[in-house]
């Protein structure tokens, strides 16, 4: 069976069928590309399907490029850290290898979705213009930057979800990345708590506590769905703020990311 001949036949009847088939094939294909097929082995025709910009609307492209920029930052950060001898203790290497792997996958996924519309990778200064000068030599500093990047990622994706409502597939992908970033944040916060001996740092964000402050601004919000939840079920303000992660706007996120650009 010649798939292209079949496609030609279908297109004679249904002019948009190829577009829809590409969409479907891309979804199916994207689920397999990472696990089974080496990219170089992919037939050109299918590679073009994957590389064709997934995002069609300008708004969606903008959001995906914003996400890609953050993922570039995280990916570059963990590649550097995982490749720096003596930084991450042996006991914690499996954790950061896994986190780094996910960030690399997110970059590849977003680049695949954006195709030619993907922004280029910026040059990063992971010391935050000197604010974290020992980020790759002192484990506590590294953990501080790591947890801030992960919590920023969680808040950033959350802030963009509404902008993707017009494209349910992209919205779901964003949500699927969002919860992975939250898993990362949870485990890194635990490591940071242990390394600093600060039991007040938990896997969840209490009030607006955390450093740098800009990353946690507004996370002490207690009004949800228009209702002030103070005192709900007799729970503390700490618990109420921990139970809801707050979004950041794109401008807030870019201001934070700007530290590392």
């Amino acid at each position: 069976m010649d798939i292209f001949k079949i496609l030609d036949e279908i297109q004679k009847i249904d002019g948009d069928s190829v577009g829809r088939l590409e969409h479907a094939t891309r979804r199916h294909f994207m689920s397999k590309i990472g696990s089974k097929l080496a990219a170089v082995a992919v037939p050109t025709a299918f590679a073009s399907i994957v590389n064709k910009a997934y995002a069609q609307s300008a708004g969606a492209i903008d959001i995906l490029n914003f996400a890609l920029t953050l993922e570039y930052l995280e990916d570059g950060f963990y590649q550097m850290a995982n490749g720096t001898a003596g930084l991450i203790p042996d006991t914690d290497k499996a954790i950061f290898a896994q986190i780094g792997k996910h960030e690399t996958q997110h970059v590849a996924f977003l680049k695949g979705a954006l195709g030619a519309k993907a922004v280029a990778k910026p040059t990063f200064d992971f010391t935050g213009k000197g604010a974290f000068a020992t980020v790759f030599s002192d484990y506590k500093t590294f953990l501080t930057v790591s947890h801030a990047l992960e919590d920023t990622g969680v808040r950033a994706y959350k802030g963009q979800a509404g902008g993707l409502m017009g494209d349910p597939d992209l919205l779901q992908y964003a949500l699927q990345v969002h919860s992975v970033e939250a898993r990362h944040a949870s485990i890194v916060r635990k490591l940071l708590s242990a390394a600093t001996g600060n039991a007040a740092i938990k896997s969840w964000i209490t009030n607006a506590e955390g450093s740098p402050a800009a990353v946690y601004a507004g996370d002490d919000n207690k009004t949800q769905g228009g209702v002030n939840l103070t005192g709900l079920a007799g729970k503390s303000d700490a618990a109420i703020t921990e139970a809801f992660d707050e979004p950041l706007t794109k401008d807030q996120v870019l201001a934070i990311a700007g530290l590392f650009l």
Binding site: K158, R183, S203, W204, E242, F244, D245
Partner: peptide, 21 residues
């Protein structure tokens, strides 16, 4: 509703933090 979507987003990441912990 965008408001409900945001609320779900505020909660799901906390569930993910729990899952990892």
């Amino acid at each position: 509703s965008a408001d409900y979507l945001l609320l779900a987003g505020k909660i799901v990441s906390v569930e993910a933090r729990h899952a990892a912990a």
